[in-house]
Design a protein around this nucleic acid. Sequence first.
DNA 1: CTATAAATGTCGGAG
DNA 2: CTCCGACGTTTATAG
Lengths: 210, 210
Amino acid sequence: MDYIGRLTAHLPAAVRLLMIKADGSVSIHADDRAYKPLNWMSPPCRIEEAPGVWRVVNRAGEELRITLEEIFHDSTHDLGIDPGLVKDGVEAHLQELLAAAPQTLGAGFTLIRREYPTAIGPVDLLCRDGTGRTVAVEVKRRGEIEGVEQLTRYLELLRRDPLLSPVDGILAAQEIKPQARVLAQDRGIRCVVLDYDALRGVTRDELTLF
Amino acid sequence: MDYIGRLTAHLPAAVRLLMIKADGSVSIHADDRAYKPLNWMSPPCRIEEAPGVWRVVNRAGEELRITLEEIFHDSTHDLGIDPGLVKDGVEAHLQELLAAAPQTLGAGFTLIRREYPTAIGPVDLLCRDGTGRTVAVEVKRRGEIEGVEQLTRYLELLRRDPLLSPVDGILAAQEIKPQARVLAQDRGIRCVVLDYDALRGVTRDELTLF
DNA sequence: CTATAAATGTCGGAG
DNA sequence: CTCCGACGTTTATAG
């Protein structure tokens, strides 16, 4: 196998699994590396078949060349359209739930807006606390150093706006890593640990009230 | 299929491809999404097989539960140990090329050293510009905000060294994202877009001269 | 289509 | 083992 594209890669001959999907993608698997193939071509792409040689190319001109020495097994199956995956507990859900129940962050908290825009990207939640101070909230599934850095950048920008300044910061996550907590404390950023199930319950109760 | 772990996910019944590798990993593929499975469990993990139900668990307590309704095809093959992949042309290459042709960054630029060590890690390139000022260069294939942050940390440290200070910063990448450019400008960091092929050409010419 | 941030990211290397 | 950065990141989403 040879790949010539964003990098060049070569794979010596060996017994491997080739998977060709209905979306046109091709992947070449060894018996390890979990689900990641040794090499692949993502759709949209096109397979040119010649005897013993496959050439897989995409629009960007990247190319996968596969030489078939021996076929031990070949099997084709119609899988149909997949009903799809339902995920729960990702960051977007947390943000929604928190936007619906900002008082989780502190007494008297109200939402100014979700995805408050700045020059370097949107702040997850912009709130006002019980005393009227502006609070920028970064929501994460897992609070790590990168989340603190992100919030720090937003705060720096937001604080330049005299209509918002002063601005406090909150990192809200289901789990906050010790290092992130230390860095946050050092920068005067408050950490709030979220309980997803409780939050979902609170929000449901809120909605049920009306 | 049900996954309970870092998130929860549910997959209704459908025809799918299950791949079980020698490393113990399990992946469940639909007929699209290139090489990424709908769900998976990475090694190390353990499969508990009961009639029609597989339970795949890992050490962290994450769990994949698979219900088998009907088996259309089942096939096992010994792939042996893979000779492995040879890659060429990734980011390390860019750094090499730039180290060989520092004038790409500006007239009169010379290299002090590659991988210049600091307390928080090595700076990709440390140079001197035409006027003798020190310049720290962060090399990336794609220049994003994280690259600007990384360089900012290095600059802060380097500027404390009276032998080096003052120190300028350059983010050099084949492609620089708009947001990264905004943040870099805000911090007085210069952005340089690299042309890989041209750089390779320049370096080849340089080498040919001697 | 581009730009951007999330991801069960994965993967490899250094400490 | 954890931390950290690269990845042909891939993927989904908003503009």
